[in-house]
Amino acid sequence: GTEIELESKNGQREHYTATSEDEARKIIEKAVRRGIKRIELRGASEQLIRDMQEIAKQIGLQYRTDGSL
C-alpha cells in the first residue's frame, strides 16, 4: 500500500495507509480540499507521484516522497 502522512496548517498530523492508488488519490484530494500544509508519500506509484506533483504545483503545497520510484 501507499503510506500517506498529512500535516494540516495547525500542525496536526494524520497517517493513512491506502490499499489502492484510487484510495490514495481520494485521501489526497480530501486533504487538499480541507487545506493541508504538507504531504508525504511512501510507496506511491510513479503515476501517483506525478499526479501529486501536479496538485502541489497548482496549490503551492509542500510534498515529499521517499524517492522509491
Rank of each mutant, 00 (worst) to 15 (best):
S45H: 03
R25Y: 09
R42F: 09
D66C: 13
H15Y: 13
Y63C: 15
I4W: 01
E23L: 04
S68C: 15
I28M: 05
I27D: 00
A24I: 06
A24S: 02
R13Q: 08
I36E: 01
Q12S: 10
K9E: 14
I39F: 04
K26L: 12
I27K: 01
I36G: 01
I55C: 11
D66Q: 04
L41M: 10
A24P: 00
Q53E: 12
R50G: 04
T65W: 06
I28G: 00
T2V: 14
E46N: 09
A24Y: 02
Y63P: 03
Q47C: 09
I59Q: 14
A31I: 04
S68I: 11
A56Y: 05
R50I: 08
L48K: 00
R33C: 13
T19E: 09
E23M: 05
S45Y: 01
K9F: 08
S20L: 03
D66S: 03
K37L: 12
E23C: 07
A56L: 13
R13W: 11
I39E: 00
E3R: 11
E46K: 08
A56M: 06
R13I: 13
R13Y: 10
R50V: 07
R34Q: 12
Q47D: 09
I39A: 01
K37H: 11
I39H: 00
R33M: 11
E7N: 03
E3T: 09
E3K: 12
Y63N: 07
S20D: 12
K37G: 04
Q53R: 09
H15F: 12
S45A: 02
R42Q: 08
I59T: 13
S20T: 12
E3Q: 09
E14L: 07
I55Y: 10
L48V: 03
E54A: 11
R25E: 00
K26H: 10
I36L: 09
S20W: 02
V32R: 02
I39M: 06
I49E: 05
K37A: 10
S8L: 15
R64F: 15
E7K: 05
I39D: 00
E54W: 07
G67P: 11
A18E: 04
K30F: 11
R42Y: 08
Y16P: 00
R25T: 02
V32S: 02
Y16I: 08
I4V: 04
G60W: 07
D51T: 10
G35T: 02
S68N: 09
N10C: 14
E23P: 00
T65I: 12
I4P: 00
G11C: 12
I59G: 11
D51C: 07
E23W: 03
L69R: 02
G1I: 15
I28T: 01
E3D: 09
L41A: 02
E29N: 07
K30C: 14
L6T: 07
K57C: 09
V32K: 02
R34A: 14
G1S: 12
Q53C: 13
E54I: 10
I4C: 03
A56K: 04
R13D: 01
G11R: 01
G1E: 11
E3C: 13
I4H: 01
G35C: 06
T19D: 12
S68G: 08
I59M: 14
R42K: 11
S45R: 02
D22E: 11
T19N: 13
E46V: 10
I55H: 04
